[in-house]
Nucleic acid binder design. Structure first.
Lengths: 263, 263
DNA sequence: CGACAGATAATGGTTTAACCGATGACGCGA
DNA sequence: TCGCGTCATCGGTTAAACCATTATCTGTCG
């Protein structure tokens, strides 16, 4: 069992919020659990104390504690399993991309902007991958390429391995933070791509460029890897734009985008 | 007042949410409020109905509703003001960077990785800014440069305008999503920089490179802007690394911080 | 008639208490 | 020894109530 350092102030009953800064009680919970993570008293996969106990230790009510934990869960940092417990998220470092998705919807980020951001991130990742990729990571890249060949006739399946290839490039960059960001942006874009992918893509051309990216990474040629990735994403964006245009005539009123000025 | 489309199922008492997935009630709340945003029935600055009323409309209890709203707040998408109401976040599109900060702490992202990610993002932003910056944005950039000159003797103040300059470059890129990502990454890094900035920086050299970035953007020279930004961030990273190395020997007992969790 | 101040209502913030459903371990029996 | 059922544990949800802050209304005074 994990015992939080400070047993809280249950020495007395006085719930005196004096100024234990308990103004925002729930923010308090988030902050203190966060501290536990920052101090490495909690690591990926660790189990938190039961809610009732943790609530006592932190000196807050269970609903307040729950709200705080739920906030952390919605960030993708905790996972709760009823009847079992609450655990720190393990596995690949990932943030829930729903917030970014909502922010995009709220401010009307255009697909072009998302492709721009994705391109910048992934081109950078390709360059780093060419410098840092391990043999295992190279093997993973090769495998996904092979799977893509095998799935040339199955758009949905092809897209699956397409996504995995890009994810593998991100991982091969050796920069987990970069991989996290790419995952978030791609996830937002993916939702929109999935809808249009049924139509015929230029799969062969797409696959060729994937191959070029892979070869450049394997050959430790950062600039070539970046160029190939840039070219690939540029074409993907153009293909997406064509598909949308071909489809948009039905989707008129763009007036809804009035608010997209954002920034 | 905003009336949610589906007045819910209060026709009967049966709390049956049909398949509105009566399972995770709170996820339901998040999903349905998210939908309101996606459907543009809610825009930046809009006020949500009072909690008690919204809870009735959605057919959930107030605590559940609150937990859902709190989750959205912790993402940085809603803002609650006691006595007033709950509002959709307005202003510059921003996500709370605390989640990223925690993820970094949890998986031990190194500062090097963060600088890598930041460099990739900001170099890309500088390139886009050179292509898209508006006259107003150029003016903002020039102002921040001027403020930095004025603050050469005041490290804290200098850093403020340094940050603002980079933020302005991100805004000038014309890609709000890119700006959002940069803000998140920078925010995580900033926390660590603030601590070491007191020591003497090579402000003049830093300022010169900022100038180069600005001039390249104004001259519509994307490649030059990228190169200058890359060089600037590279030096900043090196300077940071030097400071850390020079300082680490002194950082002994961190154990004193264990107990001060009292917040 | 207008401006200020206090009262009042509305709203988010928090807690207590209770019940439900899922999970998993323990022990009993075959 | 293995399998199954029971039961304690744990998260999930709700209801009701109270507190603190804010906004608004109202009445009085200048």
């Amino acid at each position: 069992m994990l015992d939080i350092g400070v047993t809280n102030s249950n020495d007395k009953n006085h719930k005196v919020k004096g100024r234990t800064s308990s103004g925002p009680t729930i923010e308090d919970v988030v902050a203190r659990v966060s501290d536990l993570i920052k101090q490495e008293r909690l690591g990926p996969g660790d189990r938190l104390p039961p809610e009732r106990e943790l609530a006592k230790q932190l000196g807050v009510s269970r609903p307040s504690l729950r709200t705080g934990l739920r906030a952390l869960s919605s960030m993708g940092l905790l996972k709760s399993r009823q009847g079992s417990g609450t655990y720190v998220a393990d596995g690949t470092p990932t943030l829930d991309s729903e917030p970014l998705r909502l922010l995009a919807a709220l401010h009307g980020f255009s697909v072009v902007h998302m492709f721009e951001a994705r391109s910048i991130l992934e081109v950078g990742a390709a360059g780093l991958a060419a410098e840092h990729a391990t043999p295992e990571q190279l093997a993973t890249l090769a495998e996904e390429i092979a799977e893509m060949y095998a799935a040339l006739g199955d758009p949905q399946q092809y897209l699956v391995h397409d996504v995995r290839f890009h994810r593998a490039v991100a991982a091969a960059s050796g920069s987990p933070m970069l991989a996290t960001l790419i995952e978030m942006v791609s996830s937002v874009l993916y939702e929109r791509r999935r809808e249009t992918v049924e139509r015929k893509h230029d799969f062969r051309g797409s696959l060729d460029l994937h191959q070029q990216v892979y070869r450049a990474i394997r050959a430790r040629q950062p600039e070539e890897a970046r160029a190939a990735m840039r070219e690939h994403l540029l074409r993907a964006q153009q293909a997406f734009a064509r598909e949308c245009e071909a489809e948009i005539p039905a989707q008129v009123s763009e007036d809804s985008k009035v608010q997209n000025v954002g920034v």
